[in-house]
Design a protein around this nucleic acid. Structure first.
Lengths: 197, 197
DNA sequence: GTCTATATGATGATAGAC
DNA sequence: GTCTATCATCATATAGAC
């Protein structure tokens, strides 16, 4: 931060290494299946040191989710996304969301895995979901103002469909190239099947 | 099964009670957080009896998912669903899927929780997902034959959107009255926002 | 701040009586 | 088939040297 010749990457602190290791292992094997010993090994620290920085194993979990709250940056991204046509706008928004989901895929995986066991995590998970539904809904409303006469209720339903599809595709299905999936989803959301029946 | 005066409900076998208890606890707290002692207590059997019926705790998990494979009945339901207009058809199909998901919500929760840890479960989970995408896709194709000129690729994308939304809404969001959500989703899938831009 | 050794408790699984 | 008692192991967390 001050007069170091080398950047902070090699001087990574033990606390950070512990959090990183815990995050990876919690996402891969789950909270209960991950031992503090395994975390210490992956972090390259002795197992006792974990309990110098954190009072308990569970504190590791809550700290990860508190300090590394994902998707904050998306709020500001959405502000800037006032592109011309709706299709391009939705494609861009979806790509940003997919990018954020994948960059924080470990955090998302932890939320999806553990929200049934720990009430605080469930609260955080559902609050986050709600927050983003609101964010996407208001964006879609601005985007389609005057161009679409659907009631507000459907704007929200569209936001749900948008978000839930991205989550399942990005975190569970996890294809190497999600571009095609995003494009298909956006086209369905915009035009549906335009049934003539 | 033969000359009993009472039906088989009160004569429920210990093995079944153990499986039921394990299923509920695995779904609620996860595999690793559930102890065999807790399963035995919930089932009303001594803890040793579990290992008379099952060689290990993990065998309990795989047995549950093997013997209670959900959604089999949906295949036959889909066969019968050749209703007139597409909207009614999709609403009915969605309602059936939601019903099945909720009736087997514990199994679905277990799949969602554990598929990252156990390869057999991951395989089963993704196979099941693929199977239902195919099922829904072929149904949608029959349904919209001649009424819609969308390429086959989009039929499959629609099936994905359909299924993934139902899963997230039914298993994660879990609202008391999902009817409204189903209706909104179907309308979006059929008509989208019909942008005039 | 870092590391070693260990206490304490719980867990999956077994042995064997009934 | 059912139940009790118990083993062996391993996990979280602590004590305390450096």
């Amino acid at each position: 931060m001050t007069t170091d010749t080398t950047p902070d990457l090699p001087l990574e602190e033990a606390r950070t290494r512990i959090l990183n290791a815990a995050q990876t292992l919690f996402a891969a094997h789950g909270f209960n299946a991950t031992t503090t010993k395994a975390i210490a090994e992956a972090a390259g620290v002795p197992s006792g040191l974990i309990f110098y920085y954190f009072p308990s194993k569970k504190a590791l979990l809550t700290t990860i989710l508190r300090e590394r709250n994902m998707l904050i940056e998306l709020s500001t991204v959405v502000e800037m996304l006032l592109v011309s046509d709706p299709r391009t706008a939705l494609l861009t928004l979806a790509a940003h969301y997919m990018e954020a989901l994948r960059q924080h895929r470990e955090l998302t995986a932890i939320l999806l895995r553990e929200f049934r066991s720990h009430r605080e995590i469930a609260d955080q998970f559902h609050a986050l979901r709600e927050e983003h539904i609101v964010l996407i809904t208001s964006y879609v409303q601005k985007l389609l103002k005057g161009k679409c006469n659907a009631p507000e209720q459907y704007m929200q339903a569209m936001a749900r469909t948008f978000l839930y599809n991205l989550i399942v595709i990005g975190i569970i299905e996890d294809p190497p190239e999600p571009h095609r999936f995003i494009e298909e989803m956006v086209d369905i959301l915009l035009g549906g099947f335009a049934i003539n029946a």
